[in-house]
Design a protein around this nucleic acid. Structure first.
Length: 618
DNA sequence: GCCGTTTTCGGCCCGACTGTTTTCAGTCG
């Protein structure tokens, strides 16, 4: 029997809950709390973010502790946050620590211990105060600090201020550089294998630096070859296994070189993510193994705590003590488990292979244990048509004919022509008259190319949630992308209502660039995405994963929420030029991060089936 | 603070590097 609950609008959504849990964790860190407790807050924050259901409903029904990573204590605190926007421990911590103190954690090389020491000795409670203390030469006098540390802190503060918003390189730029570097390294005879690793391999929308890994028997030779890459500007570090450079673009590239037998574990290690590794190593440990970039090793048996061991050798338990020196001993080479590939590594841990895009500790390890990792995540080769492109009819740079020919040259079967609607004046949006004339041109160009062209629109979603075309036009279109381009600063309630109404419109529409963000430039607009998805699931429509390198929205977690609701996905290019038709690659990576499978994606269908699936009015 | 095909208590990922230290703590990825 379900618990009857009275719904009151919660003070916080799940992301606010997660943010406050992280704040508690950070403040506890400053207090020198047990690191595992701090990790529990971080894990709890991640768990809350990943919850697909309504967190307030879970709390009301007392089911928060069903979520792995949330126990009694966190459940209570989460309920408090939902009810009143804070919780006792957070109130206490905030009262005790000055508000600027969390900013100090962002200073490079400054962690909780040093911050606590500086606060205790000098009363430093903000970045400004720390800077003043350094400039006055007072930091070097604190026990454990010296002149070098003082100078390093000043440099760290300078860097922090130089890049306040933490500008990261867009995935597209990073992959372009990575492709060139990997190809260059592979040309060296010393290179036995070279692969991109790091967050770029996982397809993260922005990356901080590039990690490249290589197998070689002649690391010095390969390292020297690396330094000869034409775009290398500075050498940051040069060692036996690690060489770091900065490219002319400012992007840092780390190359790590190991013998071929260690390559698979090295590649895996530097692909990350950190959270994925932490949990994976816990799984390894449970099985008497230990994992690092240097390989997978069997651990010496632990002393048994009474009773028979589960390994079926009860006699062993009394005598299988750990040798006293085992803690400090270097890894025993005979204990090494041979690992020839990432797939073998997962297999050795009893897990199915996990593609890099999924390695974020958002359920992939549990899925791998249960054999439920999707084996048919969508690939670039699966996609048969290019969706969402603009031409010179609105704000595109290439003519319709050029776009069609470029798409044909890429080997796809169809292209949707979706220029802007009338309200988008700034983008040369079409009125009904010009739209009809465009249809005439589409018909003419169709005669000249071997791919199918679909008559479409990118219809503006107006302030009130209406679509920017009369029904008479919508009925004659073959595909509708519906997007917001104006009034982006509405508050969350208004924006959510606007989008819910738009998505509820009784035509098949593709929700275009869902949150309107421009990476490094404009934050997503305030909207409760999951409510919009609920509306879309009830109505007829699909979500777009936009491949424009600056957009890449919806975000993977939203994409996953969409496919969990059975909403079909479209991988789009949002192309305003022929070159931008290649943005499909980034849409595919983003979709894979959202666990999207081939069968979830409408533009993996042949042209006829796709056209039937997206026809606005049935 | 969480968790349990050894466990309800005693674990909880791993190694490199740096600066400050005489043997290690702190930070990072």
């Amino acid at each position: 029997m379900g618990v009857r609950t009275v719904y009151k609008r919660p003070m916080a959504d799940k992301f606010e809950v997660a943010r406050l849990l992280r704040e508690i964790g950070a403040l506890l860190e400053l207090e020198g709390e047990n690191p595992f407790k701090i990790r529990a807050y971080e894990n709890g924050a991640r768990a809350v973010e990943a919850v697909a259901e309504d967190v307030a409903a879970l709390a009301a029904e007392g089911r928060l502790t069903d979520v792995p990573g949330i126990g009694e204590a966190l459940a209570k605190k989460i309920a408090d946050i939902l009810a009143r926007g804070s919780t006792d421990v957070l109130d206490r911590l905030r009262a005790k620590h000055p508000p600027g103190v969390l900013d100090l954690l962002r200073v490079p090389d400054l962690g909780p211990k040093k911050i606590a020491a500086l606060h205790g000795a000098l009363g430093v409670g903000s970045v400004d105060e720390l800077e003043a203390a350094c400039l006055a030469g007072r930091v070097r006098g604190v026990k454990g600090f010296g002149e070098k540390t003082e100078a390093k802190i000043l440099e760290g503060i300078r860097r922090l201020r130089a890049r306040p918003a933490e500008v990261r390189v867009l995935l597209a730029g990073a992959l372009e550089a990575a492709d060139a570097i990997v190809a260059f390294l592979r040309r060296s005879p010393a290179a036995l294998d070279v692969q991109l690793a790091g967050s770029a391999r996982r397809g993260r929308e922005t990356v901080g630096d590039l990690d490249v890994v290589a197998a070689s028997r002649a690391p010095a030779e390969l390292s020297a070859h690396f330094l000869a890459f034409p775009l290398v500007k500075d050498v940051i570090a040069r060692g036996d296994t690690k060489t770091s450079v900065r490219l002319a673009s400012g992007l840092q590239v780390d190359l790590r070189i190991v013998p071929p037998e260690d390559f698979a574990t090295l590649l895996h290690h530097f692909t990350g993510s950190k959270a994925h590794h932490v949990k994976l190593r816990g799984i390894a440990r449970d099985q008497g193994l230990t994992l690092s970039e240097w390989g997978l090793y069997r651990l010496p048996p632990r002393p048994a705590r009474g009773g028979a061991r589960a390994d079926g050798d009860p006699g062993a338990s009394a005598v299988a003590e750990v040798p006293l020196a085992a803690e400090e001993a270097p890894p025993d080479p005979s204990a090494k488990v041979s690992v020839g590939s990432e797939a073998e590594l997962y297999r050795a841990l009893g897990l199915a292979y996990i593609p890099p895009e999924l390695r974020e500790d958002t359920g992939e390890l549990e899925a791998a244990r249960a054999g439920r990792v999707p084996e048919d995540l969508v690939t670039l080769e699966d996609v048969r048509g290019l969706v969402h492109c603009h031409t010179t009819w609105s704000d595109g740079k290439a003519t319709l004919l050029d776009m069609a020919r470029a798409a044909e040259a890429l080997g796809v079967e169809y292209l949707t022509v979706t220029d802007h609607s009338g309200t988008a004046h700034y983008a040369g949006g079409l009125d009904p008259d010009r739209l009809r004339r465009q249809w005439d041109e589409i018909a003419r160009v169709q005669e000249q190319v071997g791919i199918r062209l679909l008559r479409g629109t990118e219809a503006d979603i107006l302030d009130d949630g209406a679509l920017d075309w009369p029904d008479a036009i919508l009925e004659q279109l073959e595909v509708v992308v519906a997007s917001i381009h104006s009034r982006m600063k509405m508050d969350e309630a208004q924006m959510t209502a606007r989008l819910v109404r738009a998505m509820s419109w009784p035509v098949f529409k593709i929700w275009g660039h869902g949150t309107g963000r421009l990476l490094n430039e404009r934050p997503p607009y305030a909207v409760r995405v999951e409510e919009v998805l609920d509306a879309l699931a009830r109505s007829r429509g699909a979500v777009e994963v936009n491949g424009d390198p600056q957009r890449l929205d919806l975000e993977p977690r939203h994409v996953r929420a969409a496919r969990d609701r059975g909403i079909p996905v479209v991988l789009s290019v949002d192309a305003h030029s022929t070159g931008a038709l290649r943005y499909l690659r980034y849409a595919v990576l983003t979709a894979r991060r959202g666990w999207v499978r081939r069968g979830d994606v409408l533009n993996t269908l042949p042209a006829d089936a796709f056209a039937r699936a997206v026809r606005p009015v049935a």
